[in-house]
Nucleic acid binder design. Sequence first.
RNA 1: GUCGGGGUGGCGAAAUUGGCAAACGCACAGCACUUAAGAUGCUGCGCCGCAAGGCUUGCGGGUUCAAGUCCCGCCCCCGACACCA
Length: 943
Amino acid sequence: MARYDHNTIEKRWRNAWAKNKKLYAAPDTGKKPRAYVLDMFPYPSGEGLHVGHTVGETATDIYSRFLRMNGYNVLHPMGWDAFGLPAENYAIKHKVHPAKVVKKNVANFRKQMDAIGFSYDWSREINTTDPGYYKWTQWIFLQMFKRGLAYEAEAPINFCPSCKTGLANEEVVDGKCERCGTQVIRKKIRQWILKITQYAERLLHDVDALDWPERIKAMQRNWIGKSEGAQVDFKLHHERQTHTVFAIVNEKGEVLIEKRKSGRFEGKWLFPAGKIEEDDSNMVRAALREIGEETSLRQEDLEYRGFLGHFHSRPGEKENMLLLVFGLKNGKASRVQPKTAAELRWQSVRALPEDHGDEVFAEMFARVKNHVSTGHIFSSLISVFTTRADTLFGATYVVLAPEHPLLEGNTLGIENVQEVREYVQQAKNKSEIERTSEAREKTGVRLKGVQAVNPATKEKLPMFVADYVLGGYGTGAIMAVPAHDQRDFEFAQKFGLPVKMVVCPNYPEPICPILEKAYEGAGHLVGSGTFDGMESEKAKTAITKSVGGTTTVKYKLRDWIFSRQRYWGEPIPLVKCPRCGVVPVPEKDLPVKLPTVASYEPTGTGESPLAAIEKWVRTKCPKCKGPAKRETNTMPQWAGSCWYYLRYLDPKNKKKLADAKKEKQWMPVGMYVGGAEHAVLHLLYARFWHKFLYDIGVVSTKEPFQKLLNQGLILGPDGQKMSKSRGNVINPDDIVSAYGADVLRMYEMFMGPFEDNKAWDIKSIIGIRRFVERAYRIISKPASLKKENSEFERLLHKTIKKVTEDIEQFHFNTAISAMMVLLNEMEKQNQLSVASRESFVKLLAPFAPFLAEELWRPLGNKKSVHGEAWPKHDPKLIAEEEFDLVIQVNGRVRDVVKAHKGISEQNARMAALQSEKVKKFTEGKEIKKAIFVKDRLINVIVI
RNA sequence: GUCGGGGUGGCGAAAUUGGCAAACGCACAGCACUUAAGAUGCUGCGCCGCAAGGCUUGCGGGUUCAAGUCCCGCCCCCGACACCA
């Protein structure tokens, strides 16, 4: 008999299967039950697959082969997530088009996969960088845009200085770029943003019904971060101060924007109306400077029109208002658009009549006055979000985040503007990591001249700006309750603020402990007026109601920053027209193809390299046909993977992203396998897109992936994560050539539980190699008999049952060990029947497809084992007549005897007491009772 | 800190959900085969003990005839989030 030579065997069957196109194809027709088994498709990197990647793919391959043998029509496709930075960076360095790099890498990946014997239906192969594919990625984006789910904003976002692109929140890990590890900075860039927050509640709610690992579900819930609480308004109390309003008037006399400026003005500023002249007024200069800083207007474009005088905004209060009016010099009007003004949170006022003489100013004056009295100009309220409305009586100060809009340009009218500005600036300059890695020492600055009125106690509370309050969450402002919030407590300690306990854990004991830290638990209320004695949980709603607050829900989830300032991604299919604004590219003109460029180098200016390609950028407005420009940002790599599982269903469809009937037949994905690192990236984004597609009727299920499993990491032999830089990467090609693909597959499955991490240990692979060699030798022994003895038969059927159940549950390690046990027994048999050998080969087939095929044919079979029916166990054959009766005395095992199944308690007791070993322990003792567990054990209790 | 997952021989790990702890494999030791090495096969292999037997699933308690498994308290490791009000 020939020696087991994996190279010859595997080459033979690899070639044979390649010719048999139907073997692994998933037909769209037919009556077989369907199953969709999906791997997270890989990014085809230049390094190729390593043994860590192939764990998940091996598992889904085993599972798919198993299901096919069980009569399922199995959709098991593969494709390439090929947009993204590595190909682009390679292109920059070597001056090759990224598409060429991708092609080469894909070919290599394909070769590696074929070598391992994966049974993908390659007729459905997809590639996200294929224009025929990304046409539909762009199409989905357009549908979102049309429904108001995509918006443009110039916002400070996370920016990776190394990748030279903006990043989504989800792509920042510990303040570093998820991809390259570079420290992320804040940068203000024009961005397209997707309103994923609009789906927050549904994304959260539907997690419950998913058959996913608990840890991934928890991560998603956590990331969405729902909290229910109350929004409560605090009135502001201003100390004496003077406000100034700037107004900008265009040549038509329309007031475009206005702004209050405040500060303590000395008497010399209180000029009578019209008396200030440009030359001698510091105030005008200050105003000009301010406008220049805060708007896109330049000082040279403005001319001073006049001064409207001062007035008391409210009777009896000492607030003064000054109104300065600036005009725009000719031809500059279009530079300020009301929208811009609104974004800057400036108030826009409706147009004034053509003639702006004194009466006009008087009217404007009246309007401004009106605004003042209605609170539209001066902020008189501040909203806070709290989950502990029950502690409102204990709120002793109020804190604003440095990003709070009311601090911009000082709309609060505080006195120490300079000091506050400096603090705000400092906070904004801090990178994420600085704000978190510092020892968390609380910092902040008191806002002088303004106080917040506690709506419950009517006390005037000091206000602060402090960076422990986050601008992006809630309202960006909090009521601080130092007695019941540790962070507030720390801040209060540092700034010497009162700590007022209002929730007592040991009510009605009147004594509340002197706090060393905040008491954050529940209890009964004290010091809370009419609410005293109420349970804190109840008090939440009661107090909220009493102060006119509203119960609200807040989420941590932020909208998805969707623009990338890079070349190698899907162009965002929008056109910017000076007349029509942002216009979507008509669907018939999709895809908007990436142009060929000379340099892929990112600009780092917040513009994509596409912006430099005049020919591509310049286009016609689809609406008015006038000259317009293309959007030059590209989509993030996640875009293509948000819906790829749908394209496999109908990869060549030119009219739709997938045919509705096919979608219904295959979806949802029944088994999805991939790395846990995508917990809040791909898996959240894809769910979001899927729900959107559900809403517009493109898909029929609310969720894309019903069952999800994460393969464990394969660590390098050093126990470290495999990476090129560590030099601990194991290439599957090397293992395939040295040990064989079957050995690699089985070893990876045998190393430990599928979802556990494990270190690669080449020493142990020999065990699997021995198993494979023995299987080869034992099964191909020519001598044969009709039927084995019943004990062997029982083991065979037990093994069939065990392997079947284990594959269903992805317990591949124990399935393999069961096959080992069976093989050990087969070896002991002098002869084996063809039937039992066939059964063994079938069990082996999903795990070691090459070997199984090699062994299958000499047993007298012409067709592939991979098209065969999975063996079934016979429950009757498994049922044993005898079992090992465990005999315990006082709960300790003293003997084990053979007994017939169904033995009565009486007989079991007799058998137990007859045992010599048992007698030793019962001699001279009183038998109190015996516990009998049917077909298992008897436990004799003696005293 | 919060959430999630864990802690079992020298190592990777099993244990039908409360019923013989350590299946299967690696490593190791002995034996057989061999001139020899390797490969292969057989035997042994949690700890203490010559043995009878005793002890053993991170630690401490509890429930039970019986606990790796259930309950209470604690320690440690891994992962995620992290000043989210």
